[in-house]
Simulated assay, not measured.
Amino acid sequence: MPVGALICVPDSVTKIEASSQSHEPDDPTEEEIEQLKDAVLYKDEDLIVLNKPPGLPVQGGSKVERSLVSMMSLALQFEYKEPPRLVHRLDKDVSGVMILGRTYESTVKIQSFLCSKDNLMPSVITIQGSVGKGLDRKYIALVIGSPTADKGFISAPLLKMVLEDGKSDRVLIAADPKSENAIPAITEYQVLKRSVLGCTWLQLRPLTGRKHQLRVHCAQGLGLPIVGDMKYGFNTHKKWMAERNMNTVDPQDIKARNKMAGSVVSKNPLLHLHSRELTIPRLRKKPGAVDFGLDPERMRFVAPLPTHMESSWEAKPYVKKRPEKVAGWGWTVPKRVLRLQHMNWQKSNRNIYRR
């Protein structure tokens, strides 16, 4: 921050009860530490790439018992003297690829690279008219409904609103794009496949990194909120839950509902938004220099889907089995109907058999 910068703090901060300030969360268990270690996708001397599990907050708060930051020193420090540092953030319920810097120099370099407007992929930068340098981010989301076009761009400036005297906030699409507080936000989307219960799988590529950008662009820009997003798609979500026809889903998936907690066929679906892939240039240390350079070779990290999204991906629509075709008949009849017809024919022709 520059010297003389002014920090504004809401009045509600001074009203926090002393009990919540003095509360210290319990230390993470060995099982939680091992689970976080198992989530590491890649590790070198400069960075750690993590497949962040859903439901784990990145940073702590007044109501947060466990966060990624509070566990990094125990699970992700490894042989270094200091724990890794945050390079970027994901929402609590969003899973997927997340990068941590292992040194101060590498953290600053990756942060500046991610925040630069000139680091977008050439294939998705046509809207801004500049040339990218290798950054590519891909998310997978399951939305309620289906877009009118299979692919396109969502260009809608966002506006942050503070509610309840600073206790919460909400991001909205700005009614006036030229407003002083409107922040430009662009997302590219593409349909991957149709799913059960009237839902659609989308691939989302954010060209800007705004808070809740993908969730707001889906809910308000496309009118298709993400499954499990009760903050930005509450009304649509409740209506969809009440009207969805479970008879259109494969019965085997319905029977396995308890094993598919949080999936699209469950009673309480979790948020279906996953940071699937992140591609960045490889960092290289200049000989005899303190700063980093960028290697032309790119590093691509892919995170597998969490359990609830994998179950939703594999959910199949119910397809009725075709009845067997009867020889010489111009229509098809199920086997049980044929058996009943045969029994009735035998009863009506008993005298013939007796003769």
Rank of each mutant, 00 (worst) to 15 (best):
I226G: 01
V227M: 04
A261N: 12
M246H: 11
Q252G: 11
M241Q: 07
G262T: 02
P251K: 07
A261W: 07
I226K: 01
Q252V: 13
Y232G: 03
N247V: 02
M260Q: 15
A256K: 15
K239I: 09
G223D: 07
E243Q: 05
D253E: 14
M241S: 12
M246E: 05
T248L: 13
N245I: 03
D250H: 08
Q220H: 14
M241K: 14
L224K: 00
D229Q: 06
R244L: 02
H237V: 06
K255A: 06
P225M: 00
R244G: 00
C218L: 05
H237F: 12
N245T: 02
Q220C: 14
N258F: 13
A219H: 11
Y232V: 07
S266T: 08
I254D: 00
K239M: 00
H237Y: 13
A242G: 03
K255D: 08
M241C: 07
A256V: 01
K267V: 09
T248Y: 07
K238Q: 13
G223P: 10
H217L: 04
G228I: 05
A242T: 11
V227P: 06
L222S: 08
G221D: 02
M241E: 12
P251Y: 01
D253H: 12
P251F: 03
D229A: 01
G221H: 01
K255I: 09
K238E: 06
L224C: 04
A256H: 10
S263Q: 01
P225C: 05
K231N: 12
N235K: 15
W240H: 09
S263T: 11
N258R: 15
A261F: 10
K231T: 14
K267G: 05
D229P: 12
D250L: 11
G228L: 04
H217M: 08
V265C: 02
F234Y: 15
M230W: 15
V265H: 07
G262M: 03
V249F: 04
Q220W: 12
G262I: 05
K255R: 14
D253W: 09
M230K: 14
N235W: 12
H237Q: 07
M260K: 14
M260I: 09
T236F: 13
T236A: 14
V227S: 06
G221N: 03
G233H: 05
N258I: 12
G221R: 02
T236S: 11
A256N: 15
S266I: 09
I226M: 08
N258M: 14
D253Y: 14
W240A: 02
N245E: 00
V227E: 01
S263H: 01
R244S: 00
N247Q: 15
V227D: 06
Q220E: 13
A256F: 10
I254N: 09
E243P: 06
G262A: 03
T248W: 06
K231C: 07
V264E: 00
V227I: 12
T236C: 04
Q220K: 15
R244T: 07
K231G: 10
R257M: 08
N247W: 05
V265D: 08
I254R: 08
P225W: 06
